[in-house]
Nucleic acid binder design. Structure first.
Length: 282
DNA sequence: GCCCAGGAGATGT
DNA sequence: ACATCTCATGGG
């Protein structure tokens, strides 16, 4: 894979990347919009306004600063060898098949605070509405960026209900206050998966599933295995076991896939949602 | 009108 | 530790 930077444009050539799938359909990020003949994508990530163009053999980022190249390198998870992940799950044919069906799907490393906000909003919600709520929440931020913990802590529960947050409104206010008061999300990167998970559970609106999403999509904890209604169904059908609750399913998946559990989960999730692999109704 | 959505929190056992 | 209920909101 080659990376070339010139005049605010950073191009990655020779890499498998499906922009539509990774940035929008995969439901791991909710800040990207697709425009202009379906090859251009735009977003404000951690205050950085960027445009991404899908190329035949890679993608390019427009309007970025040279000093932010490491940020974007991490964001798009360019250090990970996805072929190695595919090869790591040959013992589980359905997982191997799912990985091969979606070769351009990557797991992003997003800014933790933004990620925490979006997945608190995700609770018992659907993808299209999560995206609208994230967009609405940006009205409390600056220049299209997500509100900072300080900005959000200054917003009332009533204001959040007014834009449609519903019963998640108090969760957002409390967690914003907690982070404003010194809870460090970045420090969680240095902790083990289990220790970071326990700390995340102390935040309002964060349970096992949301914690796993934050760990997988923003803290580099690739062994995190978020179990939502889709993943629970798919695990019971494609990998039958004696696992009773969701916690047991998480343990099962981590036993099967180890450090790659979260990466594999993304492909399984999308194959189920898109119907690429049959998922009956039980 | 009913059921569902990348669930969490409170309560009761 | 586990089951059950409630919590807004919009879309199918």
């Amino acid at each position: 894979m080659d990376a070339v930077f010139s005049n605010g444009i950073l191009s990655f050539i020779g890499i498998k990347f499906d922009a539509r799938l990774t940035l929008i359909d995969s439901a791991q990020a909710f800040r990207w919009t697709q425009t202009e003949n379906e090859v251009c994508f735009r977003a404000v990530i951690d205050g950085r306004k960027v445009a991404l163009v899908q190329q035949k053999d890679g993608f390019s980022l427009h309007g970025i600063d040279e000093e932010d190249i490491p940020f974007w390198w991490s964001y798009f998870d360019l250090d990970r060898d996805y072929d190695a992940v595919v090869n790591s799950c040959t013992a589980y044919p359905t997982a191997h098949r799912a990985m091969k069906l979606l070769p351009g799907l990557r797991v992003l490393n997003q800014p933790p605070w933004e990620t925490l906000l979006t997945f608190i909003l995700s609770a018992n919600n659907n993808v299209s509405r999560i995206r609208k709520l994230v967009s609405q929440l940006d009205t409390f931020g600056t220049n299209g960026a997500a509100p900072t913990p300080e900005q959000l802590a200054a917003v009332s529960e009533e204001q959040l209900r007014a834009i449609g947050c519903g019963y998640r409104a108090p969760y957002l206010v409390k967690t914003a206050q907690t982070v404003k008061d010194g809870f460090s999300l970045d420090e969680l990167r240095q902790l083990s998966y289990d220790d970071a998970h326990k700390k995340l559970l102390t935040l309002s609106g964060v349970g096992d599933k949301v914690a796993d999403c934050v760990q997988l999509f923003s803290l580099g904890h690739s062994e995190a295995f978020p179990v939502d209604v889709w993943v629970e169904r798919l695990m019971r059908q494609w990998f039958p076991s004696d696992a009773k609750g969701k916690r047991a399913i998480v343990r099962q998946a981590r036993d099967m896939f180890g450090k790659n559990a979260g990466i594999v989960q993304q492909s399984l999730f999308h194959c189920a949602r898109l119907g690429l692999i049959e998922l009956g109704t039980v």
